[in-house]
């Protein structure tokens, strides 16, 4: 039960403003989710390397010599940029698959928030304005981003329970609603070998998409099949390296408003979240249809599914 915001920029000149705009949208949605907040931001592309955003409850001790320790363990140069309780590790792409295991042995308390070439995820417990200030979200730049404010329903108010959830390289998902078949689906996905960290229903939604894509589906196809396999109420906003998608369940009770101009596509759980965007007065404003996948992409040749919008 939550607030969601999302912003996909078409106009490159707005990219330095992305963090600033998203932060304002995020804070507006505090009433819908005062427990925790998170943001996924698609920023600089790290050529031939992979970015991991990691989190620690004891960042001073965990992060101080992390660059050296991880570099020694891998026999490679590793870059570490610390930001409060989070740090972004930039590692050579070919080492990416061994990072989780290496971290687990040298820093057992450090948790991986996201993995991708451009994606970084920052999330913590607390009021959205405090979370935003802690990470300096308003100063971040990028091509698109998704934010979430959380009112926990049945799972714990923890950092790991906060959204967005990272589903696969450069993928992320946020959710408003509650899934009613997540327990059995979690057991099934775990049997399929999908890593699920928490008892959170949304993480199951995210893991479901990961599983579908592992089986060969495109993101669009995975979202289509989610409409059949996920039970309950959901509005999902998903991000990929180049794109941004929205899907609501067939009942579509949980609110969603979108706005599009020549400069951007924006998503808010409520219209309030959009009111300070430039040119909002003249934007096309509409509510996404139930059981319909919407997708925008920076990729010049998006697939048919991606062009569903």
């Amino acid at each position: 039960m939550c607030g969601i915001v999302g912003l996909f920029l078409k106009d490159k000149s707005l990219e330095p403003q992305l963090g600033n705009m998203l932060t304002d949208m995020l804070i507006t949605m505090t009433d819908r989710g005062p427990d925790s907040a998170g943001i996924a931001i698609y920023g600089d592309d790290s050529d031939n390397s992979m970015k991991f955003t990691v989190q620690s409850d004891t960042p001073e001790s965990d992060f101080e010599t992390l660059a050296k320790d991880l570099g020694d363990a891998l026999g490679q140069t590793v870059q570490v940029e610390v930001n409060s309780t989070h740090a972004v590790l930039i590692v050579p792409a070919k080492e990416a698959d061994s990072i989780r295991a290496t971290l687990a042995s040298i820093r057992p308390n450090v948790r991986v928030m996201s993995r991708g070439q451009t994606l970084e995820i920052y999330k913590e417990v607390g009021l959205p304005k405090d979370v935003a200030a802690r990470f300096g979200l308003s100063g971040m730049h990028g091509t698109h981003g998704i934010g979430h404010t959380r009112m926990a329903t049945e799972s714990a108010v923890t950092t790991m329970g906060a959204h967005p959830f990272n589903t696969g390289d450069d993928q992320c998902l946020v959710h408003n609603g509650s899934l009613s078949n997540h327990n059995s689906l979690r057991r099934k996905l775990r049997r399929e070998g999908i890593h699920i960290e928490t008892e959170n229903d949304t993480e199951v939604g995210a893991a479901y998409l990961t599983w579908k894509m592992r089986e060969g589906a495109s993101l669009g196809e995975a979202l289509e099949s989610a409409l059949d396999d996920l039970d309950g109420f959901f509005t999902f906003v998903v991000g990929t390296k180049d794109g941004f998608g929205v899907v609501r369940d067939p009942i579509a009770c949980k609110p969603a408003v979108m706005a599009e101009t020549d400069q951007y596509v924006a998503f808010g759980s409520e219209y309030r979240a959009l009111v300070n965007l430039p040119g909002i007065e003249d934007a096309r404003v509409w509510e996404p249809e139930p059981a319909t996948v919407y997708f925008w992409s920076h990729d010049s040749a998006p697939t048919t599914k991606e062009k569903a919008a």
């Binding site: 039960m1 939550c2 607030g3 009433d31 819908r32 989710g33 009112m151 329903t153 408003n176 609603g177 509650s178 109420f233 009770c253 949980k254 609110p255 759980s269």
Partner: peptide, 14 residues
């Protein structure tokens, strides 16, 4: 079985 114009705690607050 549900209210006609709200669902869940975030809407309930409003």
């Amino acid at each position: 079985c549900r209210h006609p114009d709200w669902t869940g705690p975030d809407d309930l607050e409003i």
